[in-house]
């Protein structure tokens, strides 16, 4: 399994946990998320967890294990495979599903993939529309899921700051910002009409820092692509592009070995890497702290990508 277990600094939570009278922020966030997972599993007929293989999904999956322990996770995992995921990610996905003992569903928009859809032939937006949004809506409809967990967080971007934990979608799977319900205390209104569904965000109140700290404390496996390694990359100014798909290369372009890592995991043609020495989780966290006061240059790609993500989300993806 492509999991960087060996390089992790071992500071196990259990050995150092004194019977502190106070619960720290991670325990409080964990308790809230578990409550949400249990509510949805109990109030909806056919929930599903969208599993994207990234760090947030990894945390969400661990929380689901915790919520139903000693039972197994009472809903399947759904991965929307665009056909452009890193091979490493797919291997990790299958290994995790086996390890957790959860049912894994994989959905691909086969007609679009067969037609050669890619972000260079089409633009990024239309490519995502077909391979992600359309595939997701088709999968939800096909399996008749009425609730879908997603790993999105409110701190990701301005537009997400007002997202509910239970986000309502009409029969076409679309989000009506004017028709969202007030959410008070921990009392979630789970009533839907036939055909309607909800997206649920159990990590709403987590920050990117919380996610990495939790991964560190809980020793949650993540894909090795997050850690800095010497990797072959196409170097275009500040941008580093993985060589995973050959159509990404420009005529005559040759890859170089660059010590780099991915900050977020997406489709290989559209996911830029960053130059980094962070080969451990504490290293990643240290890097994250430095982002707050460092130049924006080393995350130009990631930042641009988030901008386009926002548009995709409004159109019904997340």
């Amino acid at each position: 399994m492509p999991v960087a277990e060996s390089e992790r600094v071992k500071t196990s939570r259990k050995e150092s946990t004194s019977p502190s009278p106070r619960l720290n922020h991670l325990r409080l966030l964990e308790a809230e998320s578990i409550h949400i997972l249990r509510e949805v599993a109990s109030e909806f007929e056919r929930p599903v967890m969208l599993y994207s293989i990234g760090k947030d999904s990894s945390v969400m999956l661990r929380l689901a294990q915790k919520a139903f322990y000693p039972g197994s996770i009472p809903f399947p995992l759904l991965h929307i495979d665009t056909g452009f995921k890193f091979a490493e990610m797919l291997a990790f996905r299958d290994a995790m599903a086996r390890q957790v003992g959860a049912e894994l569903l994989v959905w691909r928009n086969e007609p679009a993939i067969a037609a050669g859809t890619n972000p260079i032939v089409l633009d990024t937006k239309r490519c995502c529309g077909l391979l992600k949004t359309q595939a997701l809506l088709d999968a939800l409809r096909h399996y008749n899921f009425d609730a879908a967990f997603g790993g999105a967080r409110r701190d990701e971007e301005k537009s997400r700051a007002k997202e509910r934990i239970y986000s309502f979608r009409d029969a076409a799977g679309q989000w009506d910002p004017k028709n969202q319900r007030p959410e008070l205390w921990n009392l979630y209104n789970a009533r839907i009409h036939p055909g309607e569904s909800i997206r649920v965000f159990p990590l709403s109140n987590w920050t990117e820092m919380d996610v990495w700290q939790y991964i560190h404390e809980e020793e949650i496996p993540v894909v090795d692509l997050y850690f800095a390694r010497e990797r072959p990359m196409f170097v275009r100014g500040d941008a580093l592009l993985p060589i995973e798909q050959d159509f990404v290369a420009r005529p005559g372009e040759k890859p170089q070995m660059v010590k780099s890592r991915l900050r977020s995991l997406g489709c290989s043609p559209c996911t830029g890497a960053i130059r980094s020495d962070a080969a451990t989780i504490p290293g990643i966290i240290a890097e994250l702290i430095s982002f707050h006061s460092s130049e924006r240059a080393n995350r130009v790609i990631d930042h641009d990508q988030e901008g386009s993500m926002e548009i995709k989300k409004r159109e019904g993806y997340f």
Partner: peptide, 11 residues
């Protein structure tokens, strides 16, 4: 490492 230890005490 000190940062991570301090983070554990945060509520």
């Amino acid at each position: 490492d000190e940062f991570l230890l301090a983070e554990r005490e945060k509520d």
